[in-house]
Design a protein around this nucleic acid. Structure first.
Lengths: 106, 106
DNA sequence: TTAATATGATACCTAAAGGTTTTATGTGGA
DNA sequence: TCCACATAAAACCTTTAGGTATCATATTAA
């Protein structure tokens, strides 16, 4: 079982999810990202570190810049975990399950 | 846009994800759930509250018991959000994207 | 009716999360 | 070379998270 916790933890913060959306459109340096948030570069960098630990982004040091880009691996880990619950979304199955359970208990 | 934050927040904790797995197999009272964790009922109840706020479980008060069951709604909100990134997982597309980007920059 | 059961509610504790500020360092361009 | 730029790193602060302990309340079974 691959480690899902770091990825789920990273996705738990709205700022980090928003950063992911941005990086899905284009790779960006820390400064570029930070310029779009009402917080310091240092704060944004901490968020990027958490995203990197969750394998949601990868980083390439280019000269004095640090280029961040989307890393699908962590996203895949999360969706794979979610897939387990897929069959609970089907309304027909839910209805059937409900009927069976109620019948069992009466 | 439906509110994804409460669901993502709820999924960020390993104990809560484990509780979800249990509830996917059978509905359970707080006491039943708590008996399987090295923490107090009060702590488990707090986790259940967070799960409920994320629409990941629903609760039915039955006599003096409180029955918790999986609620697919919150899970759906999360997978819907994740779906946006689906097209980044295809290795062929990634490879192509990489080639295009590198070509542009040389 | 009464005791045991199942939970609710509140106060409290500690560590982690999310920020800021300050100081240091490596790189690129004039 | 030398300065401006982009980031690194560390100390610090405040709020939130996750947990415990304690006491109150509603049900159920005897």
């Amino acid at each position: 079982m691959s480690e899902v916790q770091p990825a789920f933890k990273a996705l738990g913060d709205p700022t980090r999810r928003q950063i992911l959306m941005q990086l899905s459109r284009q790779e960006m340096s820390i400064g570029e990202i930070a310029s779009e948030y009402p917080m310091t570069r240092a704060a944004v960098k901490k968020h990027l570190k958490v995203l990197e630990e969750g394998d949601l982004i990868s980083v390439e040091v280019r000269g004095r810049e640090r280029i961040n880009r989307l890393q699908p691996r962590g996203l895949k880990v999360v969706t794979d975990w979610m897939k387990y619950f897929d069959h609970f979304w089907d309304n027909k199955l839910d209805a059937l399950k409900s009927i069976v359970e109620n019948t069992e208990k009466q």
